[in-house]
């Protein structure tokens, strides 16, 4: 399922998620945001795979995956919100 949102004063973030029995099996993040280093995107996607929309630690997982990487145009909170909506769209 796909859900996208233009972050206020930021950039467009889109989540494409595939779910099985309420849990994500595939997560793809696209958009016009910036991430330094760019390779950190794979870690974020991996951290969100295998979880459900009611997971209480989505934002922490994103922040953990980011580590020292710098996200510009969106925050981990924005990503968590948009991810949750994408998963809920698929249910």
């Amino acid at each position: 399922m796909r859900y996208e949102e233009k972050v206020p004063n930021g950039k467009m973030v889109c989540f494409d998620v595939e779910c099985k029995e309420g849990k994500t099996t595939k997560v793809l993040i696209t958009g016009d945001f910036f991430l330094h280093p760019e390779d950190a995107i794979a870690g974020i996607e991996k951290s969100l795979t295998g979880i459900s929309a009611d997971c209480t630690e989505i934002q922490q997982k994103i922040s953990g995956a980011l580590g020292n990487a710098e996200l510009i145009g969106a925050t981990p909170e924005d990503l968590a919100r948009i991810f949750r909506k994408a998963v809920l769209c698929g249910e």
Partner: peptide, 9 residues
């Protein structure tokens, strides 16, 4: 397109 964008989208 930007690094994180989908070409087809």
């Amino acid at each position: 397109i930007g690094y994180f964008q989908s070409l087809e989208k």
